[in-house]
Design a protein around this nucleic acid. Structure first.
Lengths: 340, 340
DNA sequence: GTGAAAGCGCTAACAG
DNA sequence: CTGTTAGCGCTTTCAC
């Protein structure tokens, strides 16, 4: 018994069919107000709504209440495998709580502002942002606009907005400790873009972990983006510098794979000639040659938690923790060797 | 000079500031109606709107016009690397035309109906569906509901709805011809789920291509989903059947990788003991061991075209071609060998 | 070329 | 517990 698909049946039609006033229908169909309605009427209304295939018009209720039950998500690049699981987490939470999610790709940070403007016009109830830059003016803008926002993956260093992130410093410490324990000493870093919070946090994490072991960073090269091509280029730079490192901690998997590309082109073998670590444990890095030692993140949970925080805030349910830091873990595979 | 972020400035505020009536403001700010307004007034209104940071409330205009400038996209699983580029294409088109895109993961086909119901309630202007099943009743439902819909990736075999797809039969022909040209004769197929249009089309494509060469399908096993694990299981089944095939055409890359997994576990080498082909050319299959011979699809264009068709239909701009078929191409790598 | 007025469908006071 | 009333912000006749 599925309801009629077609037509536009409004609350008035239901009211007429049920022989009650529209406001009664509205109440009867509202989860928190249905307590005010008699059993009797409740039944009649629900039956009528069901029979007519009534679906409350969200645009109308949005206009009246100012709440659209929609949120926006801004990601830098959906094709980067880090984001789909985050999105999935966000969407799972949203679906469970009756929200829809606008997904937008913001490949160029300069385009973020217009996207946000459109989101505001669209009356979204909140935003999940995965594109924060360091000292991003967009964050001030969002706060002034009173838009509920939760950052994900990248936190704002000055803590202006709540965020759900992975512990980048710990991640790098895990990688460094693994390499040091395997006997490596000359350890270099392929750093992420230093205008992005994760880029600096990971670099600092590498440096700190090394210091803790009484070592210094052997060399470093900055990638201009978190991409395979950028990794290739940065690796070339690294190799052009003085002595070749024994191991390279990369800011992420794509960059590590770019390093693979360059090393192969130069006839160098991983891990015999050089050990490599990544970050993210994206799909298939267990199948590349050699399988990549990397850091696994709870991506889906990142998205889920960020969304939950956002909905709680939207619904005034709680003043949630300002920043949630999730724990990454090391996954040892075959791109790192133990020195004899 | 950026407009004020805060507050809720309405069309009335602009009208007041500009000293004109709200309807005049509405007209002045509407791209097609601004011709009706004098130069003079146009300037004044635009200046006022700019100064006050006016952003038309989409919920209000949606209620009035019935158009929300939003569409929904239904994908089976965002973490499947096929979909992000499709989504990106959809979103690029949407952004260019002033629409937002609701993205939903519909992992279980049984959940499609409720999602669609919510989309209808949300008043989306149209749908891009990547989750059509064979003889899907959802398609009838959408038509009866009068929802503008374009299918992508998977077409409806009875052509009830417009679709943008890749030529699955050609794709399989490319793979088969490549294997036959390389000297293979005993060719098997790891088929996709037969309740999904692509699953049957690809299987038929393999069979037809083989027939064209005067060969018969050596063996076939059906995967219960397009996943690595399903590929592993199906490959096990295939091997359990009589004589081992020389080559296996897989319904997609993930399945091919699952086949890799099983083969490796059994001590069989690709391509020395068996050649493997995939479909999709998803990221990183050029880096797995061995690099996968596969079929490349114009995924982004698939999404873009589907969205463009949808918007044209929504805006009554054209009665676009009912089905657009894009051309896949063969990418030869190292998972297929030439028999001596 | 511009103003006046009505109303999209719904919810939230306010009465009763 | 239920009905009445008003109005969210915008677009669109219909007048002038």
């Amino acid at each position: 018994m599925s309801p009629q698909p077609p037509s536009t049946v409004t609350i008035r039609d239901v009211a007429l069919a049920a022989g009650v006033h529209v406001s009664t229908v509205s109440r009867a169909l509202s989860p928190d107000k249905r307590g005010l309605i008699s059993e009797e009427v409740l039944r009649v209304v629900e039956e009528a709504a069901q029979r007519l295939g009534y679906r409350p018009n969200r645009a109308a209720s949005a206009l009246r209440t100012g709440r659209t039950h929609t949120i926006g998500v801004l990601v830098p690049d959906i094709t980067n495998p880090v984001f789909p699981p985050i999105l999935q987490g966000v969407e799972a939470s949203a679906a469970a709580r009756g929200y829809f999610v606008f997904v937008t790709n913001v490949m160029d940070p300069a385009l973020a502002r217009p996207v946000v403007e459109r989101m505001l016009a669209q009356q979204v109830d909140g935003l999940v942002m995965a594109i924060a830059m360091r000292d991003d003016p967009l964050i001030d803008y969002l706060q002034k606009a009173g838009m509920h926002t939760v950052l994900v993956n990248r936190a704002d260093e000055s803590g202006r907005l709540p965020a759900v992130v992975s512990d980048d410093r710990l991640a790098m410490k895990l990688a460094v400790d693994h390499l040091v324990a395997a006997g490596h000493r000359r350890i270099a870093h392929l750093a992420g873009p230093q205008n992005v919070p994760t880029g600096v946090a990971r670099r600092q994490g590498v440096e700190q972990a090394l210091r803790d072991r009484g070592l210094a960073l052997a060399a470093v090269a900055e990638c201009e983006s978190y991409s395979r091509e950028a990794g290739r280029q940065a690796m070339a730079q690294l190799l052009a510098q003085n002595e070749r490192p024994e191991a390279v901690v990369c800011c992420n998997d794509l960059v590590a794979l770019g390093a693979y590309d360059l090393l192969r082109a130069q006839g160098l073998r991983v891990p015999q000639d050089i050990s490599i670590t990544g970050h993210n444990d994206m799909p298939l890095v267990d199948m590349v040659d050699p399988p990549l030692t990397t850091i696994r993140l709870p991506h889906r949970e990142l998205g889920w938690r960020a969304a939950e925080m956002l909905f709680d805030e939207i619904e005034g349910k709680s003043l949630s923790a300002s920043t949630v830091v999730l724990r990454p873990e090391l996954v040892v595979r075959a791109s790192t060797r133990r020195v004899p």
